[in-house]
């Protein structure tokens, strides 16, 4: 079941400049593993010590996965995943 993933500008060099890619996965964690198989290096940019990087936002449809089940958030056919680097600083 393919999930459509929206890729932020900063990570597009890793996805041959594609803004959107199709990946399969039953959870966000699995999705990231599969993305990394197809586009090596992407996992390292998204995870920090096995958890979501604090300054990377991942949304399933309209929901920030931090308010669902983080990397365990379940995906279903037709879901849209959006990755956005947090805009933050001091």
């Amino acid at each position: 079941m393919p999930i459509s993933v929206s890729i932020p500008t900063l990570l597009r060099p890793l996805t041959q400049d594609q803004k959107r890619i199709e990946v399969e996965g039953a959870t966000v964690r699995e999705l990231i593993e599969r993305m990394d198989n197809q586009y090596p290096g992407i996992k390292q940019r998204l995870l920090d010590g096995g958890e979501m990087h604090r300054f990377v936002n991942v949304y399933v449809n309209d929901d920030d996965i931090r308010f669902v089940d983080n990397l365990g958030t379940v995906l279903k056919d037709g879901d849209n995943v959006t990755i956005l680097p947090a805009v933050a600083g001091g």
Partner: peptide
Amino acid sequence: FQFDPQEQL
């Protein structure tokens, strides 16, 4: 500062 993630989306 950090943009509210929901507003940012």
